[in-house]
Design a protein around this nucleic acid. Structure first.
Lengths: 116, 116
DNA sequence: TGCAGCCATCGACAGACGTCAATCTAGCGT
DNA sequence: ACGCTAGATTGACGTCTGTCGATGGCTGCA
């Protein structure tokens, strides 16, 4: 699997292409966690949902308020909210008959920090 | 925003749970574009690749330098690089036999801006 | 106690995704 | 001209995703 250019002496390639890129020091577990977060954002419906929940501020947003603007069926919206919840981007709270969703700003900020 | 706060606990209207959350003014096309960008980041292998390309700086990173650290076969790495390219996060340049990839900071910044 | 509404879960299905082996294209050096 | 190397493309396969209709659990009201 290793590239064959490394054997048979040193510095074989006068025009070596490979620079010592930062191949080391990459946390695989952290990458999987980040990928999970970005995956939650990799859908227009979920972006819309997160946008609305964020716009609702600390008060949170009721699911009954999200279904119609999302333009998807209620089970589909529930499915997307579950993905956002599992990614840790939002939290859910049951208030009586209704379910309210709140954004977790520190989680969103963590993703943003990963891009800079 | 959140001009209409639901006074939780005081008086809840029986037939109106819904506050006028920011349901309007959501650009569907922009959301699809953002989702495409986030989708490109929604994989640990691609995060690793982008990390290495970014670490290489303006000089760029050679594909031959990315395959082994990625821990995937060469076709798979090429496939992921294509997704990053199609998402506009990186550019490719052919220099002789080798292909060099460069990051597009303004595109990454655009995604970061969408999170804040 | 019964009824109505909100929301999560289940079952199903078409389409997309990640992965690899095999193949193809294009430069380079001899 | 020839072979070698780097990298992109193709084909195939199993898995995951987005979507909906149907169902079930839970809450509040009459």
């Amino acid at each position: 699997m290793a590239s064959s250019k490394v054997d048979a002496g040193a510095e074989v390639q006068p025009t070596a292409c490979c620079a010592p890129v930062g191949s080391s020091g990459f946390d695989e577990t952290a990458a999987a966690e980040l990928a999970k977060g970005f995956h939650a954002l990799a859908d227009p419906v979920r972006l819309h949902l997160l946008s609305m929940i964020t716009a609702a501020g600390p008060a949170g947003a009721c699911v009954c308020d999200l279904v119609e603007p999302a333009g998807r069926s209620q089970p589909t919206v529930s499915h997307h909210l579950k993905i956002l919840r599992q990614a840790g981007l939002v939290t859910s709270e049951k208030r009586g008959t209704w379910a309210w969703y709140h954004v977790r700003p520190e989680r969103v900020a963590a993703l943003r920090a990963a891009l800079g």
